[in-house]
Design a protein around this nucleic acid. Structure first.
Lengths: 232, 232
DNA sequence: CGCGAAGTTGATTGCTTTCAAAGGGTGTGG
DNA sequence: CCACACCCTTTGAAAGCAATCAACTTCGCG
């Protein structure tokens, strides 16, 4: 790894408040890898050899069973996956693929476990990361079980708009196909849902989205602090 | 708390490999409370004042939104909830109610946070607990999104039978209403699903379940290590 | 013996998926 | 530069799984 890269890696939030010696030890055996779009990074059921940390890009977490497949979440820069499996040497529960060309820091699992055992600061950092991840999945489970597809879309639009300056206007950050998967619906349903949101003055043209009546949309969506989170 | 109770509390797995001084500090401010059935222990959205540890009984984790309600999981003796919220002083994402009369150890949140900051062993114990909880929710999300109601029931039956000696015969540990909620379906649907499993030689009479053809059931259920877990 | 909750069964509705087909944009190779 | 292929997206039609509403039965318990 280049010196400049190393410095960038040390700045990752996950490594803050961790004994620098332990960070060095983890980075020593790590790879900073570039992956092209669509490449599968890890596969459900395999042993957890590396902790992955997204430096740049977007990753889709998904899993299949029989002939079905479902998207479990999207992750962006600064986020890790899949820490829980790496920590206790368990098989991955999810697969991951790069949605766009991405840079991923791959830290050997045993280096992570060593640091976890040796350094209290890192153990706390790990716990914080796991706590956030846990809360994220719980929110997603509630989102899925308590809302209709239309409501999930409405809330995603509001959350995404808020995260982008509340201008009531933005471009979708990825294909509608991906958004549909993120929201847990078939692409056809997303298309129909966008059409249905016309009644709430949501105007969609290609990737551009215009929210002309945020209040009406909010009334439909009923956003909720214990469901709507910070994930993509 | 009585001396005998204190000893029982110290034996909780969650407290193993933790500095005894920190355990004492946490237990000092803790309550060992008895709750009758149906009582709500914590409520979604409220601040996390206590870490709850189930000593005896069964607790249902659930949450509501608008006029809907969904069960997110069931927990039994030895399990904690909701650690993630307590650790970082965030609002509960889930509500909890006792399904049967239960004994719950309630540890003040600030005592937990103090121990977490002071003791590396406890920090690791917390991380382990969160990792298991995280994996549990991911499994549940996959169970919900990748399987039909009938498949969820079939797998629950197989898992529960295996956890009880694989005798192909057991009694339901709680009302069918609760099982339906656990599996994410309306009680009527559970009833119909049981009827449908007659074709696989599943015989149900009241609370008693008889699996007369485990192979056929397994073929339908297609159990999977990355979905089927250890939860109730 | 009767009340009430739990469970079953039937009928209906609705959300979502699936299958099918067509339009639209982009990139490549001729 | 155009033709074509391919994928994304949309729209239409049909089918399915599950929720809801309603009525009836069963069981436990006072």
């Amino acid at each position: 790894m280049r010196h400049q890269d190393l410095e960038e890696m040390r700045a990752i939030p996950f490594f803050q408040n961790v004994d620098p010696g332990q960070v060095e030890a983890m980075l020593r055996g790590a790879f900073l890898q570039r992956f092209p779009a669509h490449v599968e990074l890890i596969h459900t059921g395999e042993p957890a050899d590396f902790l992955h940390i997204i430096v740049e890009g977007t990753v889709e977490l998904f899993s299949g069973h029989r002939d079905r497949e479902t998207t479990l979440g999207l992750s962006g820069p600064g986020e890790t996956f899949i820490l829980a499996a790496v920590l206790f040497d368990r098989p991955y529960l999810q697969s991951a693929r790069a949605l766009v060309a991405s840079r991923i820091l791959m830290v050997p699992a045993d280096a992570v476990r060593s640091a976890f055992m040796a350094d209290a600061g890192f153990a706390r950092s790990v716990a914080a990361n796991l706590a956030e991840a846990y809360r994220g999945v719980v929110k997603e489970l509630k989102n899925q079980k308590l809302r209709s597809g239309l409501e999930r879309l409405a809330n995603w639009l509001l959350t995404h708009d808020a995260a982008n300056g509340s201008r009531g206007r933005f471009d979708l950050p990825f294909d509608k196909k991906v958004l549909a998967a993120r929201l847990g619906m078939a692409p056809e349903v997303l298309s129909r849902s966008f059409a249905a949101l016309g009644a709430y003055h949501v105007v969609v043209q290609g990737p551009s989205v215009l929210l002309r009546d945020v209040d009406a949309l909010r009334k439909l969506a009923q956003p909720c602090a214990t469901i709507d989170g910070t994930s993509l």
